[in-house]
Design a protein around this nucleic acid. Structure first.
Lengths: 224, 224
DNA sequence: CAAATATAATAGTATTACTATCACATTGTG
DNA sequence: CACAATGTGATAGTAATACTATTATATTTG
């Protein structure tokens, strides 16, 4: 993908970090390298100590950016959802026809990720894979309610709401617009996970299958 | 729920445990009390040491039943899916009409859990809540593929397949029966999670809403 | 050039997730 | 009854984790 708005920045809730990793070279290395490492070894095995030695820095320096690795995961997933929201708005904003708009929206959020040169320190393709594997761990914790109150999940919620609003625009009488919106986003991640690890539980094996599955699903429901 | 088949036992893959917890009083206390504790404090904070002191036993004794707490979680989720499969087969087996059969199946797997007196040491209601919060942690690990090969997820997969088969029985031309089956199971857990923590992202707030949502979703798709 | 700030190095702590060993109690078998 | 096998409990020990604290050293900025 090409650089359309080179000066854009994804804004993350300030409570998620101690110091904005986007404000320094070290911060960007922390974020950029953590994506590679979490992708390689999984979130559980990833530690700040290992990250420190990988970026020739120190454990204690990383703690000046993120309180703990859970907050770093929240940063990464928030960034991903913010980036996806930007793609979504950019691609659908000019579409007038509600059906075409929703169809495009589903395509954007369910298709596999391509690289985006606009954010050089972040590998969006690997980040997408991290989100598939680790996203639910960001909210399946004892602290969800507190963190939700603090707005840690607001980007994700806004994204679901955008999709739900598009659904309502097509069929205002449909009673489950929010549920359908959340099912598309979460269900899409899940289908990609199944494709890699439980292929017998999904039919989405090819490039555009997940998009086709959800487009068919959503429009069948809204027509009836 | 009443005891229909009092002598039934949910069979769990033997590789998941070191010693069958169903074979002794201590084993049953380990399983029964772990459900209460994981529900209370979440899987991350739960440790074998804490469990030991809660059941007036010893950490090392628990290790004689389960290699680690991840295996214990696999045991609990497998048990839950096995139990749910039993409910499903029991409730749908005698239904001839494919539409009625699938409708009933969706009801069984998406409705909230009631207590089952047949398994006295297991609190199915709390176990269902654990599954909502912790199930994905049982497979979102680096070891999934090895554990899958060893059959750790076979009950869950069989359950998805049962639903997929019912879908195919109604509409053999539908291309996404497996995906739809997995979406129902996983999506249902997710809607229950949203209900408790992100209510704005779901419409399933009442007792039967999740069932109604998925029944409407599935039959809309299969009709079209 | 001095002061402020950022980073690195080191050390230390409580907890976790185990492993190993030994003692004791119970149970089953010959 | 004796003795062996098994199950359980108690204790100790280890490596790794997830931090915190302190101090030293760079680097930037005013």
């Amino acid at each position: 993908m090409d650089r359309l708005l080179p000066s854009i920045k994804i804004i993350i809730n300030e409570k998620i970090y101690v110091k904005d990793p986007d404000s320094s070279d070290l911060g960007k290395r922390i974020v950029g390298e953590s994506i590679l490492m979490i992708h390689e070894m999984g979130f559980e095995s990833f530690t700040f100590k290992k990250l420190g030695s990988r970026i020739s820095s120190n454990e204690s320096s990383i703690y000046r950016y993120f309180e703990n690795k859970h907050k770093l995961l929240l940063y990464l997933t928030s960034w991903y959802w913010g980036w996806l929201e930007y793609q979504l708005v950019f691609a659908t904003n000019s579409i007038e026809n509600p059906n075409e708009k929703l169809k495009k929206a589903i395509e954007i959020v369910t298709k596999g990720t391509e690289e985006d040169s606009a954010f050089s320190h972040i590998n969006e393709v690997l980040l997408n894979k991290i989100v598939i594997n680790e996203n639910s761990k960001s909210y399946l914790t004892q602290k969800v309610d507190v963190e939700n109150k603090d707005g840690y999940f607001s980007i994700y919620k806004r994204l679901v709401n955008r999709i739900s609003d598009m659904i309502k625009a097509i069929n205002p009488d449909y009673s489950y617009a929010a549920s359908l919106g959340s099912t598309i986003l979460e269900g899409s991640l899940h289908q990609y996970f199944l494709k890699d690890h439980f292929p017998s539980l999904t039919d989405c094996h090819g490039t555009n299958d997940t998009t086709a599955y959800f487009q068919h699903l959503v429009f069948s429901i809204l027509k009836s």
